[in-house]
Design a protein around this nucleic acid. Sequence first.
DNA 1: CTATAAACTTACGTTAACGTAAGAATCAGT
DNA 2: ACTGATTCTTACGTTAACGTAAGTTTATAG
Lengths: 165, 165
Amino acid sequence: MTLKPVPKDSPKGESSPMYTISGLADEFGITPRTIRYYEEVGLLTSHRSTPTSHRLYDSRDRGRLKLILRGKRFGYSLAELAEILHLYDVDPTQKKQIKRTLEMGIKHLEEINEKIEELEELREEMIEFALSFLEIISEEKGDESDEMKAFIAGARAVVESMHGK
Amino acid sequence: MTLKPVPKDSPKGESSPMYTISGLADEFGITPRTIRYYEEVGLLTSHRSTPTSHRLYDSRDRGRLKLILRGKRFGYSLAELAEILHLYDVDPTQKKQIKRTLEMGIKHLEEINEKIEELEELREEMIEFALSFLEIISEEKGDESDEMKAFIAGARAVVESMHGK
DNA sequence: CTATAAACTTACGTTAACGTAAGAATCAGT
DNA sequence: ACTGATTCTTACGTTAACGTAAGTTTATAG
């Protein structure tokens, strides 16, 4: 499991660590095609020495990619992610779009808060259900093997440890 | 904004509240097509008096639909949701699949916990960024209007109130 | 300098999750 | 029983987010 801060250097000497497209792809469990696609739709940028050379990525690009993939796991579409990521690109000294940027940022933050709350609700519901499920099993006492009883006890312990955060 | 516990009754007398397909669709901001599709792929069931009559839904179906839509907002695919929802259908007295059911349930619960943690991380990152953004704006002191200054102060207050949960 | 290996471009294919339109059947109110 | 509103089935269309294949270039190791 070795990472790939790849070729000794990109311009000359050694600047910052650079990643190849398949290096990043492997690291995040995606394909190069996906990364190129994100560039195609304007979500990500790459750096090349010449217009036809291979793509290289620095740690900032890598962070951005990580953010994209994280967002995807929360159900954001690439279009929505573009909107969010754009917030990180606005120049704070260019006061023209500051107000809109702040409004958008706060809006997204509030959305995230809502999602967290909803997820916590969902978790509680699942926990309640699991506990009542375990309850019924236990009442139906009797013909389980010892290992099954141990398994059930373990399950209950795990679920209860999650209860109430 | 009136709900639609629709026709007086479905079989005879009055049992539990029943919902029409467009009633539910309106309530949740989706289309009847979506609800039929969920039934088509086995995520949802409907109840009809005759095989050709209109679909009706009880409160249990409604809860299930709510769960589906909630799951979708968290990035679950319909296939994944089918797996999760299936857990709610297992009979606890049929000990055949109990072990697997419990394992799956705990797995999904752990996934949810991970998602919550990741979301909290994301929120913190956005907050940090927003604060440094606001910091830079303030250093660039001077030529903002009074309302702009007030707006910025308000934004900072909002963001800080979210900080550290 | 050559020979693999890795990456490039171009372009058509695929899948999930519905949208949409047409024509027939069912329901609710008069 | 009639009629306008709802719903039904059937079936083809659409979009996002990549997958995949072919043929070409660019990079790296010996």
